[in-house]
């Protein structure tokens, strides 16, 4: 296990290990996501109050949760980069930027289109919504800061520090609906018919789409990281050899 982790820390091994792993990850991701969305959109029973409008849940909840967790991963990578000067960690952190921003944007957008028919408004300055909007700005801020430096080393350092500062926002988002009385509801308890308002017919498809979207997150982050590795290691012998044999669009 340690050996495996140690190898992942080397850009070359990260690249070579993910080469064989990517098709499997992509296959599992699209299978789970396909099942989850078809089931959620067509086969889950409509909510007794919201009708078919609740079907937005199958993308809203996983993208919102994903945006928070990918930020946590980005922060862990930033810490590893600062403490051990691990190059791969910084490349992964950089690769989280666009997909994290995208998940944030999807969660806010779908939330607005769920809020309108349910709460009567697209947007309200409620603690949960506002702290989530701040997460979007932090993502954009980290990417902007990184691109503001000419030196790659300074860019990585600055982005890592800002990423770690932004972590304070995560528990605020997570507990906003618990600490304050917000319009946004708290997390629903999952369980059987007696323990929860949400019966299994409703939450099982959410598990499929949830795991599918986690797979998609990793897929996109790995694809970006592989590009970053090729770019930063462009002078290394193994990249030079890879250039001569790999088909250009693989």
């Amino acid at each position: 296990m340690m050996q495996w982790l140690y190898k992942l820390g080397s850009p070359r091994h990260f690249y070579e290990m993910t080469t064989g792993f990517l098709p499997w990850l992509a296959g599992a991701t699209f299978l789970l996501l396909g099942i989850g969305l078809v089931w959620g959109l067509g086969f889950a029973p409509p909510d007794y109050q919201m009708g078919d409008n609740f079907r937005i849940i199958y993308i809203h909840v996983p993208t919102a949760t994903g945006a928070i967790w990918i930020y946590a991963m980005m922060a862990a990578m930033a810490a590893m980069h600062l403490v051990w000067n691990l190059k791969v960690a910084d490349m992964v952190a950089k690769s989280c930027g666009i997909v994290g921003t995208s998940f944030c944007a999807i969660a806010l957008f779908t939330g607005a289109f769920w809020g309108k028919p349910t709460w009567g408004t697209y947007w309200i300055w409620d603690a949960k919504l506002t702290s989530f909007l701040i997460l979007l700005f932090v993502y954009i801020g980290v990417m902007a800061l990184r691109s503001a430096f000419d030196s790659e080393t300074s860019a990585s350092k600055a982005a890592s520090v800002l990423t770690l500062v932004g972590v304070v926002n995560l528990p605020i988002i997570y507990y906003a609906a618990v600490w304050w009385n917000t319009l946004h509801q708290g997390p629903s308890v999952l369980g059987d018919r007696d323990a929860s308002a949400n019966p299994p017919e409703i939450w099982i498809p959410a598990f499929f789409s949830g795991f599918g979207l986690i797979g998609l997150l990793f897929l996109i982050v790995i694809l970006h990281t592989r590009n970053e590795i090729l770019y930063r290691e462009r002078r290394a012998q193994w990249v030079q050899e890879l250039l001569t044999r790999e088909p250009i669009h693989a």
Binding site: D52, N53, I56, F109, T110, K116, P117
Partner: peptide, 14 residues
């Protein structure tokens, strides 16, 4: 069920 605009806008953006 009458929510086409909201549901499909969400899924479309996604």
């Amino acid at each position: 069920g009458g929510h086409a605009y909201f549901v499909w806008m969400s899924y479309g953006f996604f």
